[in-house]
Design a binder for these strands. Structure first.
Lengths: 346, 346
DNA sequence: CTTACATTGGAAAGCGCTTTCCACGCTATA
DNA sequence: TATAGCGTGGAAAGCGCTTTCCAATGTAAG
């Protein structure tokens, strides 16, 4: 059915070896006359190389596996875009899998990628605070077999590469800035306790408060999603006493500030406040983390810690694809004080 | 380096054929005793089948290619999630490519997928109003070679499957509803003129207005993005005379309503209005299309036409993977009147 | 005790490429 | 004129599987 390289070779009147050499870059390039003849034949026949066969013969697939928690989450989709961009430029294809926040599914994805012999695997979903031994063993096997592994945050596997994101220091800087802007009453929407990323951010917030001699009014775990932020924010208000943050009850200490472990949670929290009839930033202030593109059109503008998400994806891909990769790459961000928290005048 | 099936066979003391039969589902399953022995050997050795080799031998890859315009766009990432979900359930892997709204890049992606011999290709990015002959020829070749093609909206290739989304009728229904709620002054943010999806939606809006005996005050093309909506909305206000929509200039006809060809454009338009000091929905009303998940946390809540995006992805994947696919699947949505436009009381 | 027929495991032929050798015909050197 | 050396194209051996035949065994029927 489909055109094979033999067909091309036959039509060009050369051997399979010669055809292979001209069609797919090789060290040895045949004489110009012959090469042209082969190329012409390939074009006429509409030849498309069989990547599977090439992979088998070369034992390199030009495939990179990407596993995210949820591709519909702006954080991951933006990172995915960066990975895809870089990979595309390098002529690599991206194999996408979603773990749906389930470690078992993540392991399945990795196994599938191993089966497809992807040249590299990028783990974009946050690592757990206590590494999953089954996953790590599988990854170690993958690496031993010549695969490259890059994760966002360390895996605990020495041979694996990782991108080191300023989660804790970023959170520290953000909270410190908010304190310096006069805020004093904080509650932390910490996200899932087991997720390294969420934990690091919550820790950064806590350290910053402690440094300022403050203690959070509450620390609430929850889902790393909009819904999680919404629920945690409601729970927070209940916990602090229904009207804790209402303007007429405000002490001279200023409004309550909700520090969310990521932007989608922060947006959920704002929605929750709105549903309670509270205004952000007037009654309650809210800060997030990531600076997802979605924020562009959100009102109030969200105070957050800006991470170059697409760049993170690119860096991860680069680390995955460059044979001479260079240890962990550190990624820093910036504190972005916007309307939702810390803006002088509110 | 890596464990091959031969290793497993040797360790289990059986032939390669037998090992293959037990490890990967086959018609003929060897005797239980032998099968167990092989399975044990595979487990002990940590055998992972080489999908490339299997693909070559079976001439089926269990790979489905997905091409979107921009994976970071909530519309596409939600659809991608649906595709990925369904494919994952079927044990298929998803190969992801972004065309970045560039037809040439889309063609490249398709060619790459052909090279990888994906069993099917899902084109999630909108088709152009005038089909790209080069693409269609390539796709035809792919189909001739046994591949399946599914697109959102028709391709013009008879053998290709497609999901038929209620773009025009949805837009018609939405605009009709808004008219019936009393709105009379409309402007259309039409998106890219060449994009079938955008065109159909704009056409639906126009037909609805015409049916009501109304004509739009303006029809503005632009990018299918937040930025595109933002720019088009600003341009619209300029075009209609700076303060056309200000409350104090409102005629008895009610406020201007911006009909955007999709939600991200609508959100951009709202941001533009805000930057002009105009309030939505008080001064200007805005409606979108799609009901992307992002809207959950947006304020004002956006009036839109709800499309089951994740389901669309699933349906597309199903169409792509079921050998006995059933012609075009029609997908309908619902008009959602929310805060930003048409809500009685505003 | 044969003969016929399932069963079942194995040998081997691909699947479509890449790449190592080889053999061949040149030119440059002695 | 003989010889070493280089540039070129081709034959063939894999890469790791699947699957078609085959042969050998066991069982039931005659």
């Amino acid at each position: 059915m489909t055109v094979t390289l033999s067909d091309v070779a036959r039509r060009a009147g050369v051997s399979l070896a010669t055809a292979s050499r001209v069609v797919n870059g090789s060290e040895r390039i045949p004489a110009a006359a012959i090469a042209d003849r082969v190329r012409a034949a390939a074009a006429e026949l509409g030849y498309v190389a069989n990547a599977q066969a090439q992979a088998l013969a070369r034992s390199a697939t030009r495939l990179v596996g990407l596993v995210v928690h949820d591709i519909a989450d702006p954080y991951f989709s933006t990172i995915a875009r960066g990975v895809q961009r870089w990979a595309g430029q390098q002529g690599q294809q991206v194999l996408l899998a979603s773990s749906d926040h389930d470690p078992a599914a993540e392991l399945d994805a990795v196994t599938a990628f191993m089966s497809y012999r992807t040249d590299a695997i990028v783990l974009a979903g946050s690592r757990l605070r206590t590494p999953d031994p089954a996953l790590n063993q599988t990854l170690a096997g993958y690496i031993a077999g010549g695969g490259r592994v890059v994760s966002l945050g360390a895996t605990g596997i020495p041979e694996a590469q990782h991108v080191d994101i300023a989660n804790e220091t970023g959170a520290f800087a953000l909270a410190t800035e908010l304190v310096s802007l006069g805020l004093q009453r904080f509650a932390i929407l910490a996200g899932p306790e087991q997720l390294a990323t969420a934990w690091q951010r919550a820790t950064g917030f806590l350290r910053a408060l402690a440094s300022a001699g403050l203690a959070p009014l509450a620390v609430l775990p929850g889902g790393f999603t909009s819904r999680g932020g919404y629920d945690a924010a409601l729970e927070c208000m209940v916990r602090l006493g229904g009207a804790a943050a209402r303007p007429d009850q405000r002490t001279q200490e200023g409004p309550l500030c909700l520090l969310a472990a990521n932007d989608v949670m922060a947006l959920g929290a704002i929605t929750a406040m709105r549903s309670l009839g509270l205004s952000v930033p007037r009654d309650v202030q809210v800060a997030g983390f990531d600076d997802i593109p979605t924020l562009r059109d959100h009102s109030p503008e969200l105070t957050t810690y800006r991470l170059p998400l697409e760049e993170i994806g690119q860096v991860a891909a680069k680390l995955a694809l460059a044979a001479d990769a260079v240890g962990p790459v550190h990624i820093d961000g910036d504190v972005l004080i916007r309307e939702s928290a810390g803006r002088p005048g509110h």
